[in-house]
Design a protein around this nucleic acid. Structure first.
Lengths: 234, 234
DNA sequence: CGGCTTCTTGAAGATATTCAAACCCAGTGG
DNA sequence: CCACTGGGTTTGAATATCTTCAAGAAGCCG
């Protein structure tokens, strides 16, 4: 796990306006004149699976918008055990806390090949001061993060392991009904169980036919069956 | 559990400026002219233990600032099991999501006799539009809530029951080293364990001398001992 | 092909749940 | 005044679930 560095790819700031996923991201509501307020480069950066975007406690100078891929936010307990507190998907924002002058609260790690836009803190500060159109989005982002945190707690930390895993898989499933399983260790850190038990629980769902392995760690999942396992109805 | 109604006590809006805990609350940064923008009454309301401030899904018309007391935010799973996702103490804000036009996401219940200020949504909307001084505080509030949510997950949903309980008690402890224990059911809903197991775990901490019952449900707690139980060092 | 990590499996023991029964205590009404 | 009731709490015993430790299998990379 080392920092992503060399593979940084530049972009002119102007290109934000033509961003392919602009309606999804933090700058969704900005209008043409707002973009002229951006006087620092916004870089597009790629990370390989396992690379660290930033570490908890680092003095944050930038936040990140996720263009593609998957990021985990990890929090450590004093005794060293770790918990994954959130997963970020396309369109999500990482490191919002830096806009409040705080250091990063989590360690952010790419789980797949991931592409992000790195937005310097000052850019957000300035837009925040000079155009009202960013505010709504910022609030929205905070709200989304909080909502996900609450759901995460109630869904992934409540009930028996198979229920929790089933609920997680539903969230992780692609529209086409497939999932790419994460490492057993990460599954454990999300569900609050040991790596071994995560492994057993995955095996159990396979045995029940709720998920079928297509290729290594790539599964087709029976959503309705997962749903009733998640609700403890079957 | 029914709504608090009759005991509502009025306050003139002007009194916000003289609020005894103003430096703690959402309006901390407002200046004199800002208060003139408040054209709807801000009521001060008291709730008894067990009363519901609002319910999940309700169309929220107001948010609340907690002047004194303790509030739990409860989230329900489809199968009816409930989890307490956050506790709000003096100075905290409940129902922030209404500023985004959303219904309440949780059910808010007073755990003790509790005093709040009820701020109509429109007041915040208007202040938000017309004075920049509320923004910082709003962001700060979102951030605090999110931070508490993340900590809650890592500290209260990770490890064995005695560790979790110890960590919770540390949070709940007053500066003088005493705690008022919550009902076993609520403890369970916070720690993700059954009511019975919560009861047993409380008994265990008593046996170990980590907490000593002074009067029913009022305890003196040995913070350092709780800390090392929480860290699984002893 | 090693050598490494990750995943899987087994078995013993620890931890938590379930269901039931007893208990405590405050409030009610005879 | 006391018996009765109902809520929350405690306790016990059987069972289910999870962890731990250890060992084997499978996959990956130089």
């Amino acid at each position: 796990m080392k920092r992503g560095q060399i593979e940084a790819v530049w972009r002119e700031t102007a290109q934000c306006q033509d961003c392919g996923i602009r309606d999804l991201v933090l700058f969704a509501d900005l209008k043409e004149p707002d973009f002229r307020l951006i006087h620092l480069p916004i870089e597009e950066i790629d990370f390989d699976a396992g690379q660290v975007l930033y570490s908890a406690g680092d003095d944050g100078q930038a936040l990140y918008t996720l263009r593609a891929g998957l990021i985990k936010l990890v929090q450590y307990l004093p005794d060293g055990t770790q918990r994954i507190v959130r997963l970020l998907k396309r369109g999500a924002t990482a490191g919002l806390e830096v806009t409040l002058g705080q250091p990063y609260e989590h360690t952010a790690v790419a789980l797949q090949r991931t592409s992000v836009c790195r937005i310097p803190r000052q850019v957000v500060d300035r837009l925040s001061r000079e155009t009202p159109r960013l505010h709504g989005q910022l609030m929205q982002r905070w709200h989304e993060a909080l909502h996900q945190a609450d759901d995460w707690l109630t869904e992934l930390s409540t009930g028996k392991a198979p229920q929790r895993l089933a609920r997680l898989l539903i969230h992780l499933a692609e529209p086409d009904g497939t999932v790419t399983l994460l490492s057993r260790e990460d599954l454990g850190a999300m569900l609050g169980i040991t790596t071994e038990h995560a492994s057993r629980t995955v095996a159990e769902l396979k045995r029940q036919g709720a998920i079928v392995e297509l290729s290594p760690n790539r599964c087709r999942c029976a959503i309705d069956q997962l749903q009733c396992i998640g609700a403890a109805n079957c």
